[in-house]
Design a protein around this nucleic acid. Sequence first.
DNA 1: TATACATTTATCGCATACGATCTGTGCAGG
DNA 2: CCTGCACAGATCGTATGCGATAAATGTATA
Lengths: 231, 231
Amino acid sequence: MAPLHDSASRVDRICLVVRRAIIERALAPGDKLPEDALGERFGVSRTIARQALGQLAGEGLVDLRRNRIAVVATPTFEEARDTFDIRVELERLVVRHLAGRLSADQIAELNTHIARQETAATGPEAASIRLATDFHVLLARMTGKPILIRYVSEVAYRSGLSLSAYGRPHSPECGVAEHRSLVDAMVEGDRDEAIRLMVGHLQSVAQRAFLPETHARTKSLIDVLAPYMEG
Amino acid sequence: MAPLHDSASRVDRICLVVRRAIIERALAPGDKLPEDALGERFGVSRTIARQALGQLAGEGLVDLRRNRIAVVATPTFEEARDTFDIRVELERLVVRHLAGRLSADQIAELNTHIARQETAATGPEAASIRLATDFHVLLARMTGKPILIRYVSEVAYRSGLSLSAYGRPHSPECGVAEHRSLVDAMVEGDRDEAIRLMVGHLQSVAQRAFLPETHARTKSLIDVLAPYMEG
DNA sequence: TATACATTTATCGCATACGATCTGTGCAGG
DNA sequence: CCTGCACAGATCGTATGCGATAAATGTATA
């Protein structure tokens, strides 16, 4: 009787929550994720927490080192750049497949999402960031291609983590306007233009985040504290 | 003192072996992988075997269904096609990055690999298939980009699985000749030509495998046995 | 003979327990 | 006062056990 395990096992629930916490920047790179604490927090044993951490590590969101507490991954600057390179190619595939083939329902769903994004733009930062990421995942889902969905989601989350490490405070990054014009182009069936917009969109996100030398969290604690040590 | 766990934990060792068995077609799609059996085979407990299966499932090589024995994944025909589409884009990135930048050591390593492949072409099928896949993984590794390496490896193994499901018996698929001319173009620094060769190579592999309607292993046991039941 | 049902057996899901390893703190020595 | 070692606490790695679930087998009935 007791649904001891909701169909989508508890492992997935933990992964979901942690992933979301990471892209919303509630968890920052380097933050610790002890198995005991996680398990207790979710009312499960270490076994389950451990599995979740393993899965997240597979997605590159968590670093697992032997006999050490798991931590939120800290992508290197190069990894962040590479992730975006891959992301561009994958999302190009998404747009190539969707342009001119969106059903009425899908168009409606996209518009709804964008509307929510606009609303959230004035609200708390977390929701805004999450919706921006979800837009890309939503697009991927619409291809109906499981493998593409998985990879796009993964690089999207990884990108969020990279932005958390190196990006600026999130000026409505992933501008809603760019999302809207992208959808418009896809609805029009202008495939080349849609691809161009998507690539441009992603590159501008990456550039806004990476070009200015905000190698912020790469610095060691000493470097961070240096400015305060002159008093 | 006893190195109870070789640095690369036993989980990884199991994954390695199973992956290899899959691309070498010693394990076919649908083959069962019970936790007990795996664990006993490797001298570890179910816990470890279970973790390995989880990881392999994450890579798409294994299907995991609740309370059911894990099985080698059976990609659908569409998934197989999609995998190749993604693979083309990823390996295009690899070539784009490597063309004209290969070190002498790397060139030597590639030539050595190709030589081994030529030798193996006359030997058992398994070794030939494995080396063909490893060539692509080797290229990816040379980029030094961890994320690219991971994704290329994954789609390469997945492709191997797809070929196992839908491909023909493996006429030196992934022709060694194509590998060699690809390396030549990269050494020459002719980036566009190298990319063209890689894309062509992958597409020809996919075509040789998928175009002819050899939906072989999709048939049920009954269908497979039908031809023998007329005696 | 074929179908539906009950029983058995194999296998998984998860928690727990014990041993191993690391991290940090206090104490002794330089 | 600083450095190095030793001990204690925290955390992880793995095996094992018990309950739950599904597949496999056998049996009764139409």
